[in-house]
Design a protein around this nucleic acid. Structure first.
Lengths: 207, 207
DNA sequence: GAGTATAGTAAACGAGCGTTTACTTGTCAA
DNA sequence: TTGACAAGTAAACGCTCGTTTACTATACTC
């Protein structure tokens, strides 16, 4: 039973990622699974329940992912120690892993696309989109840079994360996924060099 | 008559930008205008016709906008002269104008949001999204940088445009629009400095 | 003033929507 | 062997969808 529930969830997410919640019918989901829509209601209360379950599932995955990568949850103020440990090389590796996660992991990739399509439908969805893909990552990186006493951490964070954010769309729109990944690697490596240079300057001026 | 046609088009675009094409009904559009849906069919053949007219209207506006700003249409290979005229300061001013256009111009802003919501629905929509908001601007800027013999123009273009692209989402998601605009100004000014520095280096190495 | 487009309404059309119901299986413990 | 439960089907529910139709009011032309 739990198996079917998961299949429904994944199939629904796949369809929601293509056309958005409203454009996908319950029959579409059931049809893609080779069952009738009546059967679907044995596993979920209604269409909205499927959507909510997807969001809840993403929350769980996100928590796991964060724990795996040793990402400190909460803000820099709450736990400054963990943030200072992260040096630019770790930030680089973590960023690349993050990019691969949001592009190559099927669930995460589809969830990202779905959020992109739902972001303007309600303040709630806008909040989720910002949290997972815009202000969330930017704020997190700004905290990282700030903890390392780098100058203008917010600007740095935007400059750094913006490249990844744009490349999500490049990746989605190109047939050559590997080229997009290689381009990101080049960009981040070069940016990391500049970051290291800025950090030196920051230390000189800061002390 | 032409007046009503335009009102319908703008109202429809506004609604499409919020929820996407499928989530908006013909009754929704008519209701927002205070008329019945039957009247709507005096001005457009069907719902799809409204959408197509929006796309066609954007094409016209885009052509006008390009002509106004003296942007050369076509690629750098076709008209290399026009591209070399553009110096970094012009690129900067043009970029800021471009950002304000896609955020503050109501039609362009709504069209951008609509395309964002439709990009995965069909290859056609994906192409339009890329053309207007991803590979199009990146390619155009890469041509500009290449015409000025700057090193690694594609990387430079991505780095430069990525900031604007991310800030579209920041702008959309924040209540404080002015802060987003100010942040972009700061970022672009600083990037322009780095660009000028890179250009010097490029000249030294290139000649 | 009669005739004719034009722009609008109200109602109906068939189709598909999300959801519910009644009924048929298959599985497994008592 | 029986009973209960879980999972699935087929059909129907009321509703809304995009679209069409028949009709009305207004304005402009001959």
């Amino acid at each position: 039973m739990a198996d079917t529930r998961e299949k429904i969830l994944n199939t629904a997410l796949q369809l929601f990622a293509k056309g958005g919640y409203e454009a996908v019918s319950v029959s579409d989901i059931a049809g893609a699974l080779g069952i009738t829509k009546g059967a679907l209601y044995r596993h979920y209360q209604n269409k909205r329940d499927i959507f909510d379950s997807i969001v809840r599932c993403m929350e769980e995955r996100d928590a796991e992912q964060a724990a795996e990568h040793g990402v400190p949850e909460g803000t820099a103020e709450e736990m400054p120690d963990a943030y200072e440990e992260a040096d630019p090389k770790n930030i680089l590796a973590f960023s690349k892993a993050m990019f691969r996660y949001w592009t190559e992991d099927e669930f995460a990739s589809n969830f990202r696309k779905m959020l992109t399509l739902e972001q303007f439908r309600s303040p709630e969805m806008g909040r989720l989109y910002q949290q997972y893909l815009v202000s969330g990552p930017v704020g997190y990186m700004a905290d990282l840079f700030a903890a390392q006493n780098m100058p203008r951490p917010k600007e740095l964070a935007v400059r750094f994360y913006a490249q990844m954010f744009l490349l999500y769309s490049v990746y989605d729109g190109t047939g050559n996924k590997n080229a997009a990944l290689a381009l990101l690697d080049d960009l981040l490596d070069r940016t990391a060099e500049q970051l290291a240079a800025e950090k030196k300057r920051g230390k000189k001026n800061g002390k």
